[in-house]
Structure formats: C-alpha cells, structure tokens
Design a protein around this nucleic acid. Structure first.
Lengths: 164, 164
DNA sequence: CCCTTGAAGTTGATGCATCAACTCTAGGAG
DNA sequence: CTCCTAGAGTTGATGCATCAACTTCAAGGG
C-alpha cells in the first residue's frame, strides 16, 4: 500500500467553491477517519474473526440483564434500522453466535440470546478491541486535543440532530 | 429520529479497560463521524440522485485531462481496490454515467470516460456537495479547532501508515 | 516462434447497509 | 365472536465493499 501525494482522492470534494486550505483539511480529516475505522475493523477480524457489526451486537447482548433482549430493544440500543438488525441476527444465528428463542407460553415475542460460543467470543473481543481503541485513538490524542475533539463532536452532533 | 441518552450504542466499546471518560470521548466522536457522513451521503442522494461512491468516481474522471482515464489510474487516484473500481464502473455504466471505450488500434487497453449525462451531473453535484461540506463540517469549526483537528489527523495518519 | 510471466482488469461470492413491502399477532371496537 | 388496525419482525431487492480466483494480453527469453 504505497502512500503518495495526490491531489484528488476518495471523498475529496475540492470543488471550486472550497479553498485549497479547506479541502485539504477536509481531505486530511476524512482520510484519518477511514484509516482509523479500517484499522479497528481489521483488528477485530484478524484477532477475533468478527466484524464490527457482529461486535456491536454481541457487546450489546452481553450487557443485557439475563443476556437476552428483544429485537426492538436491540434496535433502540444500537440505533440501527430494524431490518438491519434482523438481517444481522440471521447471519449471526447462522454462524452460531446468537439464538432466536420463542418467548415463554405467556410471553410470545421472539427473544435474542447469546450462545455459549458468542459469550466466550465477546469476552475476548471486548478486551482486544479496547486495546486497539486505546492504541489508535486515545493514545494519539494530547489532553488538549481530546478536549477540542470532544467539544467539536458535541457541537456537530447538536448541529446535525437539531433541525436548525 | 428520537435522540435519547443511552449507555450502550453502536461502536461503543466501553470495555472494562477503558475509563468512562475515555469511552465517552470515543463514542461521542464516532457518533459525530457517522452523523456527518450520513448527512453528506443523504445530501448527494437527495439533491443529485447519486451515492458518495458515484460522486468520487465522477469527480475524479471530470478532472482528468481529456475526461478519460484507465482503470488503473482510477485505482491510484481513488485509492480503492481495483475490483471495487471495476464493480463500481459496471454499475455506473449501467446507469449511463460512464462508458468503457476500447483504446485505439495501437493503444489496446480499456479507457473510461464520462458520458454527457455524467458530465452534466457532476458539475451540479460538485457545487452542492461543496456547500454541504461547508455547512456541516467547515462552518462547525473555529479556527483553533480546525488547527487542532488537522494536526491530530496528520498524526493519526502517520501513526497508522508507518509500521511503527 | 513458442512459452512463461506479470500486470491489468473482470468476475463471483459473501457480508454490510438501506428501502420498501410483506406477515403475524395482540388488542380493541363493533 | 369477528374484524380492524398498529406494532413487531421478517423478507427481498439493490448498492457498497472486500477477498480470492480467473482471464487476457504484452513483453522477453529460449
């Protein structure tokens, strides 16, 4: 993967209405994002054989009291679309990480639980993944940078989420 | 899209080995990323009917001298895998945005060019997308924040790309 | 001239992500 | 009791992204 200077690149808008400084900032930032996410994804895949999506589902289930949740609870917790959750659960059920169990005679609704394999897996993965987050993200930040990034992230979230 | 406080969420690792402050920073930052990327994607889709991937290919081709490139040049410029480029071109050829043309009698290799429709489309899209980058990203940054973000992004890129 | 080899590009398979359409069931209104 | 409806969940279709395997062709060696 040779790195070289380039003026046009994935995600680089560089339109006439952005100044060179501006697109450069945008490009640099987007590039850092992609590299970081890619590195974390690869870490999960390499060290634990699971994807980020699988990790998210497993870690959410592992924190549930009783180790079971309904699909709707997963939807709320993950902030995914319900169909995305459903598809993901199907794949993970096929891999043997989770199980769909019929609710008791009174209950009725489908519940999702970790299998023994899923439970074992997530315990290791959480530690490994935390280490990678620390190595690639947290350790790369000075305290001042961390403060700035946090403040800016919060601004951005508000800005996008409130229909200004 | 109701927003509510939650302690576990997509991409939140929150493992035992991360302090609450740490995972909170990580979570906030990841959340901001996702929202921003999603907003820009939706803008492209809504205003111009194209995906980010299509935008990237079109803008790259539109900057090429002669408006044509070889697949390998696209691969280098976009920093995508060649198979990804090939699949993307197939989809875009089906949509009528680009055309694969046989090189001249001497040349031989396949060249990729914009169609009239593709050229028309990208001219509008570049301006609209630039506006969205400004609105959601650039305008959300103070000069100091911009400086910090740029510096940190560069650190992170170096850190990940150099096999330290 | 033939054969090997490597670069360029394509293809197929699989998983992630989203949209739209569908099923099923529980809980009323009549 | 019967029907209607709304919520919960599933399914299918399509596009993005990646990996591995394959095809083609040009260049060079023998």
């Amino acid at each position: 993967m040779s790195r070289q200077l380039q003026l046009t690149r994935y995600d680089s808008a560089m339109p006439e209405t952005l100044e060179p400084d501006e697109w450069n900032l945008w490009d640099t930032w987007m590039r850092a994002q992609r590299l970081l996410v890619r590195e974390l994804d690869r870490g999960l895949q390499r060290d634990h054989g699971i994807s980020k999506a699988e990790f998210s589902v497993l870690v959410t289930l592992s924190r549930a009291s009783g180790g079971e949740m309904r699909v709707g609870e997963l939807v709320d917790s993950l902030e995914w679309e319900k169909s995305r959750v459903s598809h993901q659960l199907t794949r993970m059920e096929n891999r043997g990480f989770v199980a769909r169990t019929e609710g008791g005679p009174s209950g009725r609704r489908t519940r999702i639980g970790l299998t023994a394999q899923g439970r074992r897996l997530i315990q290791d993965a959480v530690r490994g993944h935390a280490g990678n987050i620390r190595r690639y993200f947290l350790d790369s930040l000075t305290p001042e940078q961390a403060t700035t990034i946090r403040a800016w992230s919060e601004q951005l979230i508000d800005r996008i989420e409130s229909p200004s």
